[in-house]
Design a protein around this nucleic acid. Structure first.
Lengths: 227, 227
DNA sequence: CGTCTCATTGACACCCTTCAAACGAAGTGG
DNA sequence: CCACTTCGTTTGAAGGGTGTCAATGAGACG
């Protein structure tokens, strides 16, 4: 109880001021304490060039990180799903923006606590580094996708990836809009939409409303991604 | 001297067998020992899915890391210039290939030595993590480029980046071929060539042979990248 | 039921790719 | 020194995939 107040007093950020009502201080698997914070759909978690006070783990919902150009062109670098860590992909200052894709609850940890822990606990340091490595490996695959794959290949890869990462029984429920998908895959919203319909016409997927996708022919889909 | 033999005996990799004649064991700024190894133009440093025995620092020359699809489409994720570290961008197994772009000398360190050092020396661990973070930040910018920028913007960004990173007096000497540039920027060789000529016709750059580029109008060039 | 937001569909344009040929520089052998 | 080859680059013409612009359709919500 007192620890909660200490943290609250130390960290003067909107995150911690906005912490969930009644939320007590807890410990993250990474090994440091923090608090739960809620964000509603579209709300910003942190902005570009903002000093990086906190590191976050998604508890529920989805977060997108992105870069944006002066004229509005946006590239989403990653979607973070429940259980995943973000905000670590930078040094002292954020070079990305982060926003809640859906209503989201995150676990906010103070960066200082993490680096302090890493300074003494090698296993923790290794874990932290592993998070960054994971992001890097995914971004390398993402570069291949953005630089060299067709719209069909991009979308199929995306759907397969989501099916793997989201709790999917018979169909995937996409948490993000077509615009988000487009900005993630380096396409336009129209191309995403058209490609989605075409995949349906080809019998590869089945759409039940625009957010619900059933992967109808996994073999054919995997052939496209492997190509 | 004896340390050199120990390392040579421990590490059974082509890298260490191929070490430069007469090269003694030295210590890298990262804090571990290793040996110099030479690669000639086009030679592979490591392949995809090869176990990651070593981490490298470029001493002279240039190295490219890339991913390649079954049908030959290639995406270069990064060029590593003199002084830069590569091979760390992965966990235990490489997910990229690395090749020498020019005749290249690298400093090869055993991954085990690095992780062992990181386990005791926090500053070293922090440095290692910093290398990965640097790669991640660059790959995020690269994603924005690949996903959202035009051929002109891509090439201008590339030239500015090279001018900044390479020792450039009045003109930049590009160490890589048009094909490499194309595969780095997610374009075709023809588009790179055409865009290059157009930039010259517009008076933004000046070509003296295809490898030598003078940035004629820095202000205009920076306007394009900032757009 | 009306409004709002988002998704889909259509027509058209354009940037980049593809295919092909010419050009140029570097190296080799006569 | 000069043909000749080879490899990489440049240039041209044509086509296609994706973007742009615009209109229609479909849910969600009050």
């Amino acid at each position: 109880m007192s620890a909660a107040y200490i943290i609250e007093a130390e960290v003067i950020t909107p995150d911690f001021r906005r912490r969930s009502e009644g939320g007590l201080t807890e410990r993250d698997p990474l090994g440091v304490e923090g608090v739960r914070v809620d964000y509603c759909r579209g709300e910003e978690v942190f902005g570009e060039e903002e000093s990086a006070e906190c590191v976050y783990r998604v508890l529920s919902g989805v977060v997108r990180t992105y870069k944006i150009l002066a004229d509005g062109r946006r590239q989403i670098s990653e979607f973070y799903l429940a259980g995943e860590v973000f905000g670590l992909e930078t040094a002292d200052q954020h070079v990305l923006c982060a926003e809640a894709v859906t209503d989201t609850q995150v676990f906010a940890m103070r960066r200082k606590s993490l680096t302090a822990l890493a300074a003494t606990d090698c296993a923790a340091a290794r874990k932290l580094w592993g998070v960054t490595l994971h992001d890097l490996r995914r971004s390398q695959e993402h570069m291949l996708l953005l630089g060299r794959k067709s719209a069909h290949e991009r979308l199929v890869w995306f759907l397969m990836d989501m099916a793997m990462r989201l709790p999917a029984d018979r169909e995937v429920t996409l948490p993000m809009s077509r615009q988000d998908i487009a900005d993630y895959l380096g396409l336009t919203i129209e191309t995403v939409s058209r490609t989605m319909t075409q995949l349906q016409e080809d019998g590869l997927i089945e759409l039940h409303g625009c957010r619900h996708v059933a992967l109808r022919d996994r073999v054919a889909l995997e052939l496209i991604t492997a190509a």
